[in-house]
């Protein structure tokens, strides 16, 4: 059965007639194309190819939506995102474009939708230090040199590829709705094992965890479900590994 599904390919064998014929074909294509060319060129600096809205370019950041979960930093395969402490003592991302590979894993990991994609991708830096972008510069859309007066779309129609040119400037930023909300909270699955190291409380950026001494002198960590953003940092850091993220069942 396997044999049957294999197709044997044999290269062509030319006699004199075929040789002349193929020569004529080759010359024919060249001549035809120099008269009616199927040009596929985008005249870049003067026009710009329109990239689809899901294009993965430079990254913007919205501090209001950030829960400082470090997900973007943890997932970044190039370690381009490093968190920097802001004046309000929260950690916010910075991007080093000298490393970023534009995989947008960070954006796909940001549950609050604080990171957003732009369509900026044609930038040249004079020196490497400038490639590091602090949080403050990621908030608004940067300005790039635009020499383009038109934008071009590659339209793949049934017969062929067509270039559709439109006058005007293409937009570089698309607002997308934030990702679906899947609320999670941290819960302690085995309070008995807690050694009271308070790592979780230290690491929580939202002050959701506090320590309380119960009667009998045992230390209990209390997690405030309203404050908890489900970022999961405490889960990761817990020395006894007794914290877990659970889906928040809202009534």
């Amino acid at each position: 059965m396997k044999m049957k599904s294999m197709k044997k390919v044999v290269g062509p064998e030319y006699n004199l007639g075929d040789k002349i014929k193929t020569n004529v074909y080759a010359v024919g294509v060249a001549m035809q194309e120099s008269v009616y060319p199927h040009t596929a060129t985008v005249f870049y600096p003067r026009e710009r190819k329109k990239m689809p809205d899901n294009f993965r370019g430079f990254i913007l950041f919205d501090p209001d939506k950030c829960i400082s979960c470090f997900n973007c930093s943890f997932v970044c395969p190039a370690n381009a995102i490093r968190m920097k402490e802001a004046p309000n003592k929260r950690y916010y991302p910075t991007v080093d474009y000298g490393r970023c590979i534009f995989c947008h894993f960070c954006i796909d990991s940001c549950s609050g939708g604080a990171l957003k994609a732009t369509k900026i991708h044609d930038v040249a830096y004079k020196d490497m230090d400038a490639m590091f972008t602090p949080t403050e510069e990621m908030i608004e859309l940067p300005e790039i040199i635009r020499e383009d007066k038109k934008y071009v779309e590659y339209e793949i129609k049934e017969d062929d590829l067509h270039l559709k040119r439109t006058k005007g400037e293409d937009y570089l930023f698309v607002e997308v709705p934030p990702p679906k909300e899947i609320p999670m909270v941290s819960t302690c699955i085995d309070p008995g094992s807690c050694i009271g190291c308070r790592v979780c409380a230290d690491v929580c950026e939202h002050g959701a965890i506090s320590a309380s001494v119960e009667d009998g002198g045992t230390l209990r960590m209390k997690i405030d479900t309203d404050e908890c953003t489900g970022c999961g940092l405490c889960v990761k850091e817990c020395s006894m590994q007794i914290l877990m993220l659970n889906k928040l069942e809202r009534e």
Binding site: N88, K89, D122, Y125, T133, E136, M138, E140, P142, I144
Partner: peptide, 12 residues
Amino acid sequence: TIRFKHVELPPG
């Protein structure tokens, strides 16, 4: 080729 706009982060 690129000019970033500096926006101050919220004080805290």
